[in-house]
Amino acid sequence: MLGSGLIKGLAVTAKNLAGSFHDPARFVTTEYPEVKTKLPENYRNFPFLVSENADDPMGTLRCVACQICEKECPPQCIYIEKSKDKKPDAAGKMQLYPAVFDIDISVCMSCQICVEVCPFDAIKMDQVFEIATPDRFQPLLLDRNQLAKPNSYFHEVHPTEAAEVDARLTAERKAAEEKAKAAAAAKAAAPAKPAGAAPAPAAPPSTTPTKPAQAPDPGSRRGDEGSAEPSKPPPPAA
């Protein structure tokens, strides 16, 4: 019969129309901004800097101004100036810190390469996307005050990744402490060694990352240890 294809098609449309009144799989509109969809944990937008302590964001930034993210950023949207002095980091080691850390988010393409190459877990991806501004130059240049967010915030937006990072950093710090203690004990047990004869049983370099001038081991990067970022399953796809 001529038109049977058309009628079959219209039956499909009718099924969808009727279904949209009672079946959430047929009616998929969310009335944003009154109703917001839940974003998956892995969702990334622009980067932010992690500081350990919410009370002193600038003083406890994990960033040591090594400038690796600046070099690796494909559109070159990060601008870093190192400080002239050093401050103790979370493990007590004296490190440089970024006096200036700007990200131009009108250029940033959210590729996440800065996060992948950072050896210090200092820069992570944020999830805020409601950041429209009327002026396209100055408000889209985020400085370190606007970029710094505390570790507690990191736990809020990326719980599994933050937990894994914290576990790894505490393990590293513990290992460093124990090595330092063992070295100190060895040193104390040999007080009769004449000064300057043999080099003192030098404390082995701590495993926490040292001077930023040395390029850290390129093998130590996120994402290549199997269980990187397990995410919550996506919304039910009926």
Binding site: L39, P40, E41, N42, Y43, R44, M109, S110, C111, Q112, I113, M125, S231, K232, P233, P234, P235, A237
Partner: peptide
């Protein structure tokens, strides 16, 4: 639905990198 899968895996719907 496929884009949601990509988003939960790579972080972005279309620019997956």
């Amino acid at each position: 639905k496929i884009l949601d899968l990509f988003e939960s895996l790579s972080g972005s719907r279309m620019m997956c990198n």
